[in-house]
Design a protein around this nucleic acid. Sequence first.
DNA 1: CAACAAACAGTCAAGCCTGACTTTTAATTC
DNA 2: GAATTAAAAGTCAGGCTTGACTGTTTGTTG
Lengths: 212, 212
Amino acid sequence: MTSTASSRIPQEERTRLMRARLLDATVECLVERGFSGTSTTLVSERAGVSRGAQLHHFPTKNDLVVAAVEHLTEVRGAELAAAARRLPRGDRRTRAVVRMLGDHFSSPVFTAALELWVAARSDPALMAAVEPLEQRVGRETHRLTVELLGADESVPGVRELVQATLDLVRGLGLANTLTDDTRRRGRILDQWARTLDTALDGALHATLQETT
Amino acid sequence: MTSTASSRIPQEERTRLMRARLLDATVECLVERGFSGTSTTLVSERAGVSRGAQLHHFPTKNDLVVAAVEHLTEVRGAELAAAARRLPRGDRRTRAVVRMLGDHFSSPVFTAALELWVAARSDPALMAAVEPLEQRVGRETHRLTVELLGADESVPGVRELVQATLDLVRGLGLANTLTDDTRRRGRILDQWARTLDTALDGALHATLQETT
DNA sequence: CAACAAACAGTCAAGCCTGACTTTTAATTC
DNA sequence: GAATTAAAAGTCAGGCTTGACTGTTTGTTG
């Protein structure tokens, strides 16, 4: 054993940690400086990782950013799942669900994702990485929302209302990047929750009347 | 008169035309290449305007882009007003209104605006130009939507429903920049139009019951 | 314990974008 | 019709970003 106690960290673990630090720093830079303001130099400095080390793990900026997209996807999924677990049961469930979604789509991870979407729009290589991941996230979020709302998608119109809810929070998230919008968002989503509740009930009753 | 018939264009008009060509080219570049892909050189080439002429009108990139923001604001307003005038009267009004809004927020002008919003997020000078204009557009669009829907904002909840409609189309517009989304958008907005109609009625009835 | 491989660190040249400068062209005014 | 002034055209240097290259440290294997 030539190694001292402090250097007992296995190589594999070191690699994982180094990459994680770089990817976290990348996401931070995306939020603070935007995509084009995120230079690889800045990321390496921010992560406290040498330029050489960075280029060892991610040879080009694209490699770094694509990995950041994947990393961010995982973070978004985890955050959403965690928030979902904290939701109260019973009454006012719908309100809590849409508020949670609204908050999630107004968080820094959304901002970072937004930067990547917009950048991908004019960068085919990035788009190739972003698109499939985004579709997966979209489907998962939809599934989760349906589950949390206890909605019945076999009823006509319900699927569209859930999608509308997600597109709404996406729009609110976008508005939130320009000016802090928390209060306005709260009011809108409260009203949305009420409307959604009666609409989901209404759709159900309409279907029941048709079938009976 | 030394000038020939073809050079009879007054200086003032020439200037106006030259600026318009540059600003249109800027918006086109924003849509096709994104904000950071929009170099001043590219814009001058695209506009068929020499670099010197460009720098005469807009000394810095920021000057050009800020002017493009203002220009785009006008274009957006005009497009929306024109689309509003084409709307059918009478039945299915709500459906037509939300579809029109959905289309507008999925058009190239929205894409260009999106690029500017995201860029402004990490550029204070640009933000200073974008924010006030965006607020004005937001207010105008809201007012127009209320008018087109014939909604009564004195009824509680109605204002929020209109805002939600606008944030929804914003979210749909954002989704549309990643993948063409026309069909999905149509279904969602049709359902939302139905829901909005009953919700607006519902809000009205609820208020009537409270007051009687 | 020694040899080998992988990770890490730092430097630097090439390429691109911006905006300053100079020259040329066109319009206006006396 | 000539002088004056504004607009347009072209050129180029400075600054920034990227990623290629070389040297050093750390972990692994025989």
